[in-house]
Design a protein around this nucleic acid. Structure first.
Lengths: 123, 123
DNA sequence: ATATTATATGAGTAAAAGCGAATATAGTAA
DNA sequence: TTACTATATTCGCTTTTACTCATATAATAT
């Protein structure tokens, strides 16, 4: 993996917010959209950049694509583990996102009914 | 220090090359220019971005401004130490730069005569 | 088969970042 | 003082990046 590309991928606030969420476990695109309040196309593009850099992987299940951290890359560059798991969640914006993530998880809402529950997570 | 700004500052190849040099010790602007073969205005701008992010500090001595790592920030974010001192110098471009740095150091040339020795370091 | 849905991608636009040349600034040296 | 030098900054330009809207794709469901 190209470290320069990795660092470029990490040089964007939205992508850092996505990684912060994924540090807590796999999520599908529609979940990331809702939790971060970004639009679908945007989410998809940022996820693609993170994938190209090798930071995340994805797996398609039915209609949904689940993204998660790429452990191989984390193993190759130990500082990334430290950064993503120890530092990222100290950033204020990421803290707020993680609260929204918890709210989503504890709500029992699944991907399938997310479209009907729009807005319930923002704030 | 704002971690998002730090990561943005790290998302640029030229700035990574500069940090790679500074990981070996303080250098003044004219030395960085010569070793990396970038122009003066460019060097100054990138150094400014790294400074604003808190990654480096500078000290003026006579006409020269010497830049060096900011140890406070490295202490605040330990992953940065690992990244800068362990990973950066594995990047091919940085390896080449570090060879040019060694060549410069062992040449005995100082800042004062750099302008007369232009080009001697490139390649 | 058709309809629906989640995701990816294309096209156009806007914003940001990087660069080179020229100029400004601040310090040194004579 | 004046001349010189290293660095910072401004300007105009180019390239890159991020964003939105619309469309395409692929899978599911009926």
């Amino acid at each position: 993996m190209d470290l320069i590309q990795i660092m470029k991928a990490l040089g964007d606030e939205t992508r850092l917010r996505i990684l912060s969420l994924l540090s807590k476990g796999a999520l599908c695109v529609c979940e990331i959209e809702q939790i971060l309040s970004i639009n679908q196309s945007n989410a998809s593009r940022h996820l693609n950049k993170l994938s190209i850099a090798g930071l995340i992987k994805n797996e398609k299940r039915a209609l949904y694509v689940y993204y998660k951290m790429n452990d191989d890359t984390l193993a190759e560059f130990p500082f990334l583990k430290d950064f993503i798991f120890m530092e990222l969640n100290k950033i204020e914006k990421c803290k707020a996102d993680l609260i929204a993530l918890e709210k989503y998880k504890s709500s029992g809402i699944s991907c399938d009914d997310l479209k009907d529950a729009k807005g319930c997570l923002s704030n």
